[in-house]
Write a protein that binds this DNA or RNA. Structure first.
Lengths: 344, 344
DNA sequence: TTGTATGCGTTATCAT
DNA sequence: ATGATAACGCATACAA
């Protein structure tokens, strides 16, 4: 099928392989117009296409990067991936995408496979584990960038949202609209899942800074599948929160399910604000006030940093980049002028 | 960095490269327990990892496939991609993802680059153009599978939704609920964008089969960005449709915007049904009746067919697989018992 | 300006 | 059971 090689072109053009090679690499400074044309014609005629694998073997570089994500279906993932892919195209790089499913074992396996495939660098939406593996990579100066999450002990570039700021934005906005009893909803906390920790911690801090009550019961942290149940408990017993802060789109979805199933009116019965700007934010009723991440910029930055490491393999100072969240004001939080907490 | 090679292992273990190679490929039938252990230890000690590029050069196979998509942000894309990625992982394959942005030029370029990189096969969500390029691929028996769309003249495997059936499902459901004046909304029609054509054609056919009026004005085909404007015209002049069929999620979004901005009540003023099961379908008010595509099954099938072509490179009969749509009944279409068309 | 020779890290063939 | 050697397709130093 694809059997035509450089040797074939050389033969047809009556030159040597080296000359063809030079031609391909645009080193035609010392090449006669004549031979250049002959080679061009030979290539054309044979439909020759260079074998990049062979080139890679020689040059020890593949113009390919690996991206490992913990959840390929997540909106953030896909948007960042989009930016990464675009940046790579501009540089003539390819990207191999692997989905770890948030399983550290899989993650480790894919890192190994990708390395074996000689990728020039790795961008990873990490599970947060595998510290040893990453440690080895940074020691070897292998180009590596974390996105969205990171591994605490590892000194590598990381592209993160300014999570504390995002949480603070939410609290401040709610506070300025007269809300006091505010709850937060998140998946289970785990020290290796950095954004979750930072958002909840940021939330707690902002609350105290604003002089608002920190109510233990109002911190709903549960598996996504149990969130509705937990919310039901919360709203059944005692005084429910006036507002809820969803730390990401998945938890928001669950809250939205919950309010729909229970006839809770947003924002009159319950105000809502969340991180991640969901696509339906402005067609939902009410439209959803959200805190957006600059996903495209983050992906672009991740690619940039990786390329930086790839081109100059010397030591570089690993940095953590915190991207600013943006509050998008819509209608799921209203101004609570007078302290009415009745329905409708 | 990653400099330890098979030769190093061989030296340390006091054997030849060939023996190490055999060990790696698990051909230890004729290998003494003794040497096997020595090799294992040497590998361990040196942290040796085989260079897959070198292997690929020799074996002429990369265990890598290319996937070219016309819109990486599209929900369908991402779900199908997920399935493809999973299937590939099971087989130890990697997938390189490229985004053509629905630009045939880009598409062509990526095909060439991917071929140069010696991918073992291509799954493409095609722009519908580049017939010549694809023609050449099938002539060369290069493993190729189209997904979602296809290129009319090209005899290759294609994984498609049964688009006509999907449109018919919509019409039948609407008809059975008492709707008669039904419109459809789609991006501009183009003969090379197969699903669009098939859905609209299927819609028209189903209408006539059901004895319902086919009203030219009710076919809204416009750029996504102009759809709202076109809908406004339609609803301003004359008698608006009682129900609308959105041929995909993007058009649905625009319709949803439109009804929100114009205070049109769904389903009382206007019933809605669409292809693609959007994630917010059952938190929207009313919940959205949709026609879902079996995205995961489609992705899996695409990978399967590609693998089939990859393993036995002999001729195979190209097939078009049409996957059955599923109507998910929710609340955006109501039973129109009595012919009231008033509001609320 | 172009050609020769060698190496990249494997696998495969054929000896031994 | 294990080893020597020749590919794989290209790039590059050096020669001519």
């Amino acid at each position: 099928m694809k059997k035509v090689t450089m040797a074939d072109v050389a033969k047809l053009a009556n030159v040597s392989k080296s000359t063809v090679s030079q031609y391909l690499n645009k080193r035609y400074e010392y090449m006669s117009e004549e031979t250049r044309k002959r080679i061009a014609r030979a290539i054309e005629e044979l439909g020759y296409q260079p074998n990049i694998i062979a080139r890679s073997l020689k040059q020890k570089t593949t113009a390919t990067i690996g991206v490992i994500v913990f959840n390929i279906l997540h909106m953030l993932t896909i948007q960042v991936l989009h930016a990464i892919e675009e940046a790579c195209q501009e540089r003539g790089f390819h990207v191999i995408v692997s989905n770890s499913d948030d399983d550290p074992e899989k993650e480790k396996k894919y890192i190994d496979m990708l390395l074996a495939k000689q990728v020039d660098g790795l961008i990873v939406f990490t599970t947060g584990k595998n510290e040893d593996v990453y440690q080895r990579l940074v020691e070897e100066r292998f180009p590596l960038v974390f996105v969205d999450r990171m591994v605490p002990g590892v000194e590598a570039d990381a592209i993160l949202l300014d999570n504390k700021r995002a949480a603070a934005l939410a609290v401040e906005y709610l506070a300025s609209h007269g809300y006091e009893r505010i709850g937060a909803v998140a998946p289970p906390l785990a020290s290796h899942v950095v954004p979750r920790m930072e958002r909840i911690e940021g939330f707690r801090q902002a609350l105290t800074e604003k002089g608002l009550p920190v109510i233990a019961d109002y911190f709903v942290t549960a598996e996504i599948s149990s969130i509705q149940r937990e919310l039901a408990k919360l709203f059944a017993s005692g005084r429910p929160p006036e507002a809820l802060f969803a730390i990401n789109d998945l938890t928001l979805m669950k809250i939205l399910h919950f309010v729909k199933n229970n006839g809770i009116h947003v924002p009159d019965d319950l105000a809502l604000i969340s991180i991640d700007d969901v696509p339906f934010a402005d067609i939902y009723t009410p439209t959803l006030t959200t805190i957006a991440q600059p996903t495209f910029a983050m992906g672009k930055k991740a690619a940039e940093r990786l390329f930086m490491q790839i081109v100059r393999k010397q030591k570089h100072k690993p940095q953590i980049f915190r991207f600013p969240p943006t509050l998008i004001e819509r209608k799921s939080v209203r101004q609570r002028g007078n302290n009415n907490d009745g329905r409708r």
